[in-house]
Amino acid sequence: MTLEVDDLRVYYRTLKGDVQALDGVSFGVKDGEILGLAGESGCGKTTLGKALIRLDGRMKHVGGSVTLDDQVLPIGDDVKMNPYRFKQVSLIPQYSMSAMNPTRKIGRMVRELLDSRKVKLDLDELHNRLDLVELPREVLGKYPIELSGGMKQRMVMVISTLLNPSLLIADEITSALDVSTQKAVVTTLKGFRDRGFVKSMLFITHDISLTNQLADTIMVMYAGKLAEKAPAGVVVNAPKHPYTQLLISSLPEVGVRYADKRLTGIPGNPPSLLNPVPGCRFRDRCPLAFDKCAEEPPPVEVEKDHVVACWKAA
């Protein structure tokens, strides 16, 4: 196991109280595994991604642990976490377009960043990786503004993976891209994994069909909790959790006409995570809900590698 997350709880401090955005999530990522993290907005997927590398000012590590390569990450301590960042855990951010300092030439920025981390820049390796993502080497002598959006995205991907991190977090990196570029990004990420640039990856997205192309395993989250985690094919074809089933069924299928049958989506909204009611958090929207749902369903491994948190599935 590269990454092991155990009962992780991260809350947002607000004036009204704590928002329980990530409330007891446990999972593991194996060596060489790409874990796709899916769910609707507000389900805690970005919070989870941030928790693994850098909590922002409003976030509070309440409980649980993160173990990477048998080392416990001090995720609650910004300063102690620094030595692990970039080298062991790295991030491709949502905002690749503006992730680079606009007034520094890219090559110089990379060198300054590596110097500040006391790492020597391996220029040949950097050139190799630029070749790999089909960026001309001249980009190192350019300012970010001189690159197109796609080039910036690839440049950030190269920078983030330069030190061969054990875990790479890719947070909604395809959301702003057109479909063909999305496909290219996914292929590149797979290439990075296959060449051993990154040992394992957490691919956060709201786009289940895209996750299916890339991920080995898909984890679906709902309202700060794990709903279902299974190999990609199983989640898409034979989901057990009612939320996953509804999520999959609300995806349009290619070649199917929707003239007679309208896409419905899932009625209702996710609950407020400020003092949520105990029990299953999906039960208000769940068509299968029954009395037992007032108790919180524990995640149960129903088959090998298939974890579901639902009373009906177990």
């Binding site: 790295s90 503006s98 960043l113 500040s116 981390r117």
Partner: peptide, 17 residues
Amino acid sequence: ESDYANYLSALGAPQKL
């Protein structure tokens, strides 16, 4: 608060840089 500052922080760059 800008994106490049956040990115550098996430990559563990020291506050000085």
